[in-house]
Nucleic acid binder design. Structure first.
Lengths: 185, 185
DNA sequence: TGTACATCAGTGAACGCGCGTTCACTGATGTAC
DNA sequence: TGTACATCAGTGAACGCGCGTTCACTGATGTAC
């Protein structure tokens, strides 16, 4: 039966937040509309009162995942000198505390492979998220604006590459790659 | 009707080589048994005379993709001084000539995201492939064996991260990330 | 070397299953008076 | 503020579809004599 506008908004947010977790845990193709609705305590039939297509949910969920990640990053980096902040973030990114909880982890490491074969709309949302992450990291780098941005992209690409290779490999190889990519000294 | 052992072996190789291309182009979940058989000029029904499960094909196809990539790498690096060889490989990896032809590209960049959620058997094959690639790159790095290996892992992780982020982003963001990750000077 | 027969690679129909999406229905919400 | 009614969020059955896998069948291959 019909619910209040307020409750509908709450449902919408719960679907999106649940999907933001499920997508990172299971990937785009292995997360069904039914699962996303169940995670919000609803049934699949009502899905299309909230989203035009499954892809529209994917876009909103990806946006939510990036927002979550940016909040987390700012909490991690807050109030530290640049060198320490970057080193700690680098170590955190490659840690089991981060990579062992895919549902709350960086959407770039968890979903880049899936998004590469997804719709333009989703790629645009992904690009927006990446640029926000880069900007946040760049704020802690040294040099001109362009130098900081490029340094951030290089550092972030290293982290993402190491994380994705590790997640796709057997445990032994994963461990070696993560160790090699941690900051020196 | 039954075919000669020789022809069956030829069919097997054609299925695996076709799958090695299709998997990189379309991903693990978006490539069906029927498609793989069609690409080899056969029909889906005979699949289980060649492979116990779809996953068994994935493992063989991934192995083939890595073998292909290693051959390509050695051709690229052959007969150059270490510094030039690495710089050229680095540039090639992030070029459109490489990333614009997914079916023949590096399986790490094309499939890592998918393999992260696949079976242990596939992850082991992936890990084996990664170690082979790392060993090949390491041969051109400087320092002790361990230093060379770690440098290779860091460089390769950067390449893979940049390639995957670019492929998942809108064209503008992709271009910026690839440019930032190319070797300096 | 020739013959009889068992083997089995490949075919195409069929299986159960889960997917994204649609739909008739329910009944509380929101609105017009 | 109270009443009558239109709206529409949510439900659960149903849709067509493609998937991985199975199976009865065909007929050339490989083997035993």
């Amino acid at each position: 039966m019909r619910v209040t506008q307020e409750e509908m908004d709450r449902h919408h947010r719960r679907i999106v937040e649940g999907a933001a977790r499920l997508l990172r845990e299971q990937g785009l193709d292995n997360t069904s509309v039914s699962e996303a609705m169940e995670a919000a305590g609803l049934t699949h039939g009502g899905f299309y009162r909230h989203f035009e297509t499954k892809d529209a949910l994917n876009v909103e969920a990806l946006e939510a995942a990036f927002a979550q990640q940016l909040t987390l990053m700012e909490r991690h980096l807050h109030g530290k000198d640049p060198q320490t902040a970057l080193t700690q973030y680098h170590n955190y990114y490659l840690s089991d505390a981060h990579l062992g909880r895919p549902g709350a982890a960086c959407p770039v490491a968890m979903l880049a492979g899936d998004v590469a074969r997804a719709t333009p709309a989703l790629k645009e949302q992904f690009g927006r998220g990446v640029r926000q992450v880069i900007d946040t990291v760049a704020a802690w780098e040294a040099g001109t604006k362009k130098e900081r941005e490029q340094a951030a992209m290089r550092e972030f690409a290293l982290l993402v590459g190491a994380a994705i290779i590790a997640r796709a490999s057997d445990p032994e190889t994963a461990k070696a790659v993560l160790a090699a990519c941690r900051p020196m000294r």
